[in-house]
């Protein structure tokens, strides 16, 4: 469904991604791992059209999207929950969710999806009229994912959904990610928590300073001694 071929990307003169190729098949969860500054967020930005690649191509359903703007890419079915949650603190939960469906024109569909995401995140349903600023960290993360789901994506980009959250909340959130996936949404998951990511994903890529270091089925990588030593802590 999504395919990156020999993608490079830079911030000004600094190259952050070098010759990356990866694939997210329909309906799968793919993890993207790597140390701080490896280029995980940059990869998601390139896919979402926030940053354009300097070389290589990004295709979605066989269509080249590497030169498209985000507002054109979101309607194709790619939505992102950015790193650090980035919810709109001055808007209510309901308004935040509406912003997620910003590019959509089908009102009835939006109403249906609002019901759907609220059934996934009942805690948000109780707080629809609360402003974003007053949500707890866990609730904010749920809102960030729910907001992305309001675009009704076929591919969901998640940037570190477990960041700074208690294990209980992380478990809840990952249960919901699996559920969304089982209903047919493909997920590209960026995570610092490699253990959790490899348990959740079908396939994984590992980045090292902007380059692809390793990739394979998640179960295989979990047993790989090098991965164990560097990313799984033992």
């Amino acid at each position: 469904m999504l395919k990156l071929t020999n993608v490079s990307a830079s911030y000004g003169r600094i190259e952050a991604l070098h010759d990356i190729s990866l694939e997210v098949p329909e309906g799968k969860i793919v993890a993207l791992l790597g140390a701080n500054g490896a280029g995980k967020t940059t990869t998601l930005r390139v896919i979402a059209g926030i940053l354009h690649p300097t070389r290589g191509s990004v295709t979605f359903d066989g269509r080249d999207i590497s030169r498209m703007e985000t507002e054109e890419i979101v309607p194709l079915g790619i939505a992102m929950s950015p790193e650090g949650r980035q919810i709109f603190t001055g808007l209510t939960v309901a308004e935040n969710l509406r912003m997620g469906s910003y590019t959509r024109k089908d009102k009835a569909g939006v109403e249906r999806d609002l019901e759907w995401v609220l059934s996934l995140f009942p805690r948000l349903k109780e707080r629809l009229n609360q402003v974003g600023a007053t949500l707890s960290g866990g609730e904010q993360q749920m809102l960030a994912i729910a907001r992305a789901l309001m675009a009704r994506p076929r591919l969901l980009l998640l940037d570190e959904p477990s960041l700074g959250l208690a294990p209980m909340i992380v478990r809840d959130i990952f249960t919901i990610i699996r559920k969304v996936n089982s209903e047919g949404t493909a997920v590209l998951l960026v995570e610092q928590n490699a253990n959790l990511a490899l348990r959740t994903a079908d396939y994984a890529y590992i980045l090292e300073t902007g380059k692809l270091a390793m990739h394979g089925p998640a179960a295989e990588l979990r047993r790989n001694p090098e991965v164990k030593r560097i990313y799984l802590g033992g």
Partner: peptide, 19 residues
């Protein structure tokens, strides 16, 4: 609402497809 969104988080506003 789009104005408030870009005030609160340019990154997220952009990710939602707000130019």
């Amino acid at each position: 609402r789009a104005f408030i969104a870009l005030r609160d988080s340019e990154v997220a506003a952009q990710a939602m497809g707000i130019s």
